[in-house]
Simulated assay, not measured.
Amino acid sequence: MTTELFKQTIFNYENNQEWKFEGDRPALIDFYADWCAPCKMIAPILEELSEKYDGKIDIYKVNTEQEQELSSVFGIQSIPSLLFIPKEGMPKMQAGAMAKQALEQAIENELINA
């Protein structure tokens, strides 16, 4: 996901001071880097979950090396960092890799049943 796509589909931080989610479904954004071992570890888990929750949530990936502006907007200091964005309410950031079961639980709690 590019910074421009983020501003169109998630949140345009240049035009809005207050959080205003632009998406149709809850979203999960994975901030990662190609050289990051924990990022590589959770990538296949996110692929699986993307299929499992197809049509219920949107899962995006943001390469922190290529999208430095977007990474700085969210203060990304460690990767992977996962941003859980419910349809209503404020997004929540989770730093560090998560096991599949913990990630599924977080998706259910923060996005599906929010």
Rank of each mutant, 00 (worst) to 15 (best):
Y32E: 10
S78N: 13
N109F: 07
A95W: 01
S78E: 07
L111Q: 04
F21C: 08
I79W: 02
Q68W: 00
G89L: 00
Y53M: 03
P80M: 10
T9L: 13
E18K: 11
T2P: 12
S71Q: 10
V62T: 09
I79M: 10
L111S: 08
K61G: 11
Q66N: 14
K100Q: 04
I85R: 04
D24K: 14
L28Q: 15
F11N: 09
D34V: 11
E22H: 15
A43L: 02
E88C: 02
M41E: 08
I29S: 13
Q68H: 06
L103D: 03
W35N: 05
M98F: 03
T2V: 05
Q94C: 10
D58P: 09
I79Q: 02
K92D: 12
L83I: 05
F11P: 09
D24T: 14
D54P: 00
L70A: 12
I76R: 06
I57W: 05
I59K: 04
L82A: 07
S78Y: 01
S81T: 15
I59N: 12
M90L: 15
T3Y: 04
Q66H: 11
P44K: 00
Q17Y: 12
E108H: 08
I42A: 03
K52A: 08
E108F: 04
A37Y: 03
E51I: 10
L111T: 05
I42S: 01
L83M: 09
L82T: 04
E47W: 00
I42C: 01
P44F: 00
I42P: 01
D54E: 14
L28N: 15
S78D: 12
I76Q: 06
S81K: 02
I42Q: 06
A114K: 04
E14A: 10
Y60G: 14
K87E: 07
I10D: 08
Q101H: 13
L103I: 02
A37W: 00
L82M: 13
Q8H: 13
I107S: 04
N12T: 04
S71I: 01
I57F: 05
M90P: 09
K40H: 03
Y60R: 05
E110W: 02
P44I: 02
D30A: 09
E67A: 06
I57A: 10
M93H: 01
Q66L: 14
E69G: 09
R25C: 13
F6Q: 09
M41G: 01
E47S: 12
A99Y: 12
A43M: 02
W19P: 08
P44V: 00
T64G: 08
A99F: 12
D34A: 13
E88Y: 10
Y13Q: 14
Q101Y: 12
K20I: 07
L82K: 03
D30W: 07
S50R: 10
E48P: 01
E108A: 13
E108D: 11
E69K: 12
M98C: 09
M98N: 04
S71R: 04
F31H: 05
K87M: 11
P80Y: 05
